[in-house]
Design a protein around this nucleic acid. Structure first.
Lengths: 337, 337
DNA sequence: AAAGTATGCTTAATCGTTTAAATTGCCAAT
DNA sequence: ATTGGCAATTTAAACGATTAAGCATACTTT
């Protein structure tokens, strides 16, 4: 493979020092008083040799890579791949490149990915933390490593965070259902120590209570590892009439999609036999035979804000802030019609 | 932020040279005859200081970054995000990290992304080429830069390539339809100079011809830029009875999904009024009110193969090969029922 | 004429590694 | 006594950039 062209190659050809070439390449010809004629010559040769700066060498010298890491649960999940896309575009605007990694919701993979990022000297990270990564994340934050938590956070960690008002989202959704006459409103969520999940559940519970529907609370907290199996069990019971529930709220898109498959298979009529409402949206929600009502997160806004916060930190700001955004209920035929 | 720990910090503390520490860190204690006692001490201090090698420095010195670049059309598109996920896992197995970029099917963005990759000194690239990038890709290949084309290729370029038997996929799909009694079979595809698109169209055309259905050829080659608008026009005409077509083959998932939205909106009955069949699959295909028959690409296999080929090249192999894989027709209710 | 200053360029250290080659002691063999 | 060999370690260059500091030379000032 053709050898790379370095500053030295240009310097040799023009018969000057590499310093001078560097100044010109970086547009410092004014400050460093390089003669007009020399600037011309150097650019000419640089173009002739098709010079490309070596970012690796620049990074080593400058101590920064102009790279930020994004770690999500699974880049193949539409929710996260959309986030990735916006991160890519947004960081690009600031002259940064984004690198991605999937944690699979496992703390060991999470750590391995983030260690790789750190070894590669990313300037900062945007993290959708996985279960059990609290201490690791806390260490990062304490070390003052530029970090922004996205979508999920931990209690007792004072970190930059951008996320949804999850409590309010659930609360409002349930309230909306109640206003449409539903009483037996249930929820399927993950057993999780992560704040966002807890808040979604709390919003549901509190909304039920404040509407005097405590006796109708129907909460299935399932484990991610046995997702499909547990969902299947729930709907088998539902079909056999064991579960008295008119409407189900799905706590995220994984649960939603798994439920959709089950509902489709068991030919449960939506919304006649059961109303449903989920988080996040996506193609599955749009094309389910009756489009599914969902709680829409302002992903673009969330990502823009988190990138901005991260870049601020990288540039030295030590201000810590939590940004909580409002969701929007997209009403469709799967309930309240 | 806490200063990084370097080899020198360990060396200073143990009072030896950095070379010795480097040998130990790289497991070369045998070859370099480092004393057992010294090995112990160095590891002890390394752990105490929590030493992490600086990949940037290593890369500069070694001339390789252990990174490969993947460039797709849009990381938010489920087809590509799934590819990205498999690439991430697969490269990980070889000790490589993957970086991603989206071209948005634009040659200028494509070049800008790949230039960034090259400046960052990725060891190789897996490319889903965009329209109009043939010359650029050709240059890479000619320079012997490790490159694998995925999903799409160009004529007259002798590059490593992994893709589908697109001609056969279309041909077989149409043949299958013919066997089920369809005659007026149409296709919607993109106007494109890219091989995979042309082949899909050719497969359709040839299958029509060899079944004596030439008179029923109905081919809409639309432009990606005006996708939604043109799709809308097509279905408006269809509804008004202007188009005599019983079944439509969608040339990729973008066209499919755009069509699904239109079909849903216009309440066209599938498969009663129109049968449909698409490429790629995904949640949209699964949840469309009648699940959509589609041509399934063996993505896992394709990616595994392309990563393997790329790593081979990086390791010095100069063998060039084209791997063409077979698709599978996933039959569902949107046609032939 | 001496001193000051503006101009245009070079020198050399530095970032954190890797690694070929050199060095130092020590012991055994001639 | 000299040589050779081995074990254990050090030295120093290299990767490709950046950048503070230094050094001529020429041009103004007083």
């Amino acid at each position: 493979m053709g050898k790379r062209v370095s500053l030295k190659d240009i310097a040799d050809k023009v018969e000057v020092s590499t310093a001078l070439v560097s100044y010109v390449m970086n547009g410092q010809e004014k400050e460093k008083r390089v003669s007009t004629e020399m600037v011309r010559k150097i650019w000419e040769v640089a173009k002739e040799l098709n010079y490309r700066p070596d970012y690796i060498a620049q990074s080593l010298r400058k101590g920064s890579t102009n790279t930020i890491g994004l770690i999500v649960a699974d880049i193949a999940n539409p929710f996260f791949s959309y986030i990735a896309r916006v991160v890519e575009d947004e960081t690009g605007k600031y002259g940064y490149t984004a690198v991605f990694g999937s944690s699979d919701e496992r703390s060991d993979k999470f750590e391995s990915v983030i260690n790789t990022f750190l070894n590669r000297r990313v300037d900062g990270v945007i993290i959708v933390p996985a279960e059990g990564t609290k201490n690791y994340v806390n260490d990062l934050v304490k070390k003052n490593f530029p970090t922004v938590l996205l979508d999920r956070s931990f209690e007792e960690i004072n970190a930059n965070y951008v996320g949804l008002d999850n409590y309010g989202a659930s609360f409002d959704a349930v309230t909306h259902l109640v206003h449409h006459g539903y009483k037996r409103i249930g929820m399927i969520s993950f057993k999780s120590s992560l704040m966002h999940m807890k808040e979604r559940v709390n919003g549901y519970l509190e909304a039920m209570k404040s509407n005097n529907l405590e006796r109708h609370i129907w909460l299935q907290e399932i484990s991610r590892k046995t997702l499909k199996h547990e969902i299947k069990k729930i709907f088998t019971n539902f079909v056999s009439g064991k579960e008295q529930v008119e409407c189900m709220l799905f706590a995220n898109n994984e649960i939603s999609v798994a439920s959709f498959y089950c509902i489709q298979e068991k030919k449960i009529k939506i919304p006649d036999e059961l109303s449903i409402i989920g988080f996040d949206g996506g193609e599955a929600f749009d094309f389910f035979y009756n489009p599914v009502t969902y709680i829409k997160q302002p992903i673009d806004l969330m990502v823009k804000e988190s990138v901005r916060m991260l870049i601020d930190q990288i540039n030295g700001s030590s201000e810590i802030s939590q940004v909580i955004l409002k969701s929007e209920l997209i009403k469709r035929r799967s309930c309240c019609f």
